[in-house]
Structure formats: structure tokens, C-alpha cells
Amino acid sequence: MTNITAILKKEFRSYFNSPIAYIFITFFLGISSWLFFRGFFLMNQAEMRGFFGLMPWIFLFFVPAVTMKLWAEEKKLGTVEILMTLPIRDYEVVIGKYLASYALLAVTVLLSLVLPLSVSLLGDPDGGTIVSGYIGLLLMGGAYLAIGLFASTLTENQIIAFIFGITACFVMLIIGEDIVLFNAPNWLFPIFSYLGLGAHYSSILRGVLDSRDIIYYLSVIGFFLTLSSVSVESRKWR
């Protein structure tokens, strides 16, 4: 546990030691609020649905940017050699790095709370859907991060890690969308609609916190973290 916290602290601090965290937070909040308010005044409705609807697509580009450096940079610099010869288990490093990226995402998402605050100044939005929306956001973001982290373990090039991450997240997102589902063979329909990242999110957005959705996100996170551990260990395969 102390090992995980040490890695977590180091990675989290390194986000703020470099411009990454500041640029990420600024642009994420800037772009998402601009896109949100653009439609907000046209609709003239005091609700956050537009914001939450945008998020799967904004996350698609922003989240892999957070995770791309986590392993790729270590491999490029060679620091992974010191890191992986410390008396730490591989999965502890994976979890530590994951939690650090999660902390950055959580900070960003919390900062976006100014949006519901300003909306509530202008009208009377439904508090329940906003709370469940944020819970959905944190769960879905966690899944994106796990996929991005796995993409980062595959390569030592950050740009490739970024593109892998976007592609993997995109595939996971799109298979649950109607356009794919209607064209998919019948026997794949239930599998795809269950696996899609977006479908569970939209059911949470409706204000229904179903344990199946929470379990879905937790298992996606667990699955990709396990894959990351395996990928990190693969250097030792005979």
C-alpha cells in the first residue's frame, strides 16, 4: 500500500511539475464549457443534459492524453529499468499510476462543478440527475483511463500510445451506439450493447444508478488494469 501511494504521489506531482496538468485542465474546461453554453442558451432550459451528452466524446480525446505518458515516457527515458527493479510488484506500479491519472481527472471533473453552479444561478436544474451524471462521469472516465493506460504499456512512443488509446476507447464507445448495433449480426447485438461504454453511461444519466452499470465500469477498469500488468510483465516472458 505504501508503495502504491509513493508511486501515486510521484506521478501526480509530475503532472503538476510539467505543464501537462495545467494545459489539460484549462483546455478541458474551456472546450467543454464552450460547447455546452453554445447550445445552452439556444435551448433555454436550465439543465445539464447537453454537458453530460458531450462528455463521452470529449473524454475520447482528452483522457488518452493524460495516460499516454505514464508508461511510454518511462520506457523512452529508460527510467522503467530503475522502476521495475525496485522492490515493488508490477501491479502496484500499475495501480499507482492509474490512481494518479484518476486523481488528475477527478480534480478536473470537480473543477467543472462551476457549470452546474452557474446553471443553478440561472434557473432551477434537477439536482438528482446532476449528481448521478457526475457519478457516471467519474465511472466512465475511470474506464477510459484504464484503456489509455493499457495503450501506453504497449509502446515507448507517446504519440502512438495516444492514438492507440483513442482508437481503443473509440471502439469501446462505438460498439454500443445505435449505428453499429443496427448493422451488427443479431447474435452480436446483446454483446455489443452490453460492452459499449456509452450505453451504461446514458442509463446512469437518466438518474438510475443501477448496480449492473457500476459493476460494468468496475470490471472494465479491472480488466484493462490486469491487461496492463500482464503487458508490463511481458518483458519477462521466456
Binding site: K10, S14, N17, L77, G78, E81
Partner: peptide, 12 residues
């Protein structure tokens, strides 16, 4: 262990 060419975290 000191690996070849001392890889370190440059931003720390």
C-alpha cells in the same frame, strides 16, 4: 542498480 546512462526523471 544503476542502469546504463543513468535514466532519471528529468522533471523532478
Amino acid at each position: 542498480y544503476l542502469p546504463e546512462s543513468a535514466p532519471l526523471y528529468m522533471d523532478m
